[in-house]
Design a protein around this nucleic acid. Structure first.
Lengths: 125, 125
DNA sequence: GGCTAGTAGTTGATCAGATACAGTAATAGT
DNA sequence: ACTATTACTGTATCTGATCAACTACTAGCC
């Protein structure tokens, strides 16, 4: 979702939230593929990775975490912050890595298909 | 959705229906951008454009047509088939062309963003 | 005639992902 | 004390996609 950067004129068309639907799991797995992380940090990583242009809502992400844990694609455990707030850390599992690899391929195929259907010369140059 | 081409082993991971979610409108507009068409023909065009690999379900498309008409992006009218079954023809409007152009840009941006988040070298080469 | 398949369009119920919204709770800065 | 930020959670709702039917006409086959 496009953030309205405070002062900028609101003529920039927001891209619909649904455009990334179905990719959230893969994106989170992609973040965790590098290193383990906790919920809020993953959120910030995603937000910052696009220069603040795009944001997946916290509620969406926490729902995603739950789903990924349920499916055995990531493992969760509470950190031992003796001081400071609790953090739940997530690690990608082998199953998660496998699904990630598969999903990246699906994503590539999806791009090809949509670009074909739209007659768009696709992708990042 | 991946069609299981009859005899092929079912190891091919289907890409989730949701992966193209939000793009159906744009895809239909893209088809109509070239020439007017009727419901079932649009369905076949999309199905065939990907070599049968991908299919948007008829029910999904008819819901899409209704939405596009409601939003004024296409116009509908019954053909005058004196013999044979009825066909409802769809034409893209100027508003539809504008939305199409905008959506293609959104799609391009979306690709960039996801490719960034997944660290994928993106798109069709 | 009866059967099947293909074309063409439509409806109602349901699912799942994303979001809005609200809330809890702790810490750090002023 | 107040406020912002960090961090996580739960409930309700929206929407697009799909399923599973259904109507209706045409053409080919036995």
């Amino acid at each position: 979702m496009v953030q309205n950067p405070s002062e900028s004129p609101p003529q920039s068309e927001p891209f619909a939230a649904d455009l990334l639907r179905g990719h959230t799991d893969t994106i989170v797995l992609g973040v965790l593929r590098g290193a383990e992380s906790y919920g809020f940090e993953i959120y910030k990583t995603i937000r910052d990775a696009t220069g603040g242009l795009y944001e997946i809502k916290e509620a969406t992400l926490y729902a995603t975490y739950r789903r990924l844990v349920k499916d055995g694609l990531v493992e969760a455990s509470w950190g031992d912050e003796t001081q400071g707030g609790r953090r739940k850390y997530y690690r990608i599992t082998d199953a998660g890595r496998a699904v990630y690899a598969k999903n990246v391929q699906s994503w590539t195929a999806t791009q090809r298909i949509i670009n074909t259907l739209l007659n768009v010369k696709g992708g990042t140059p």
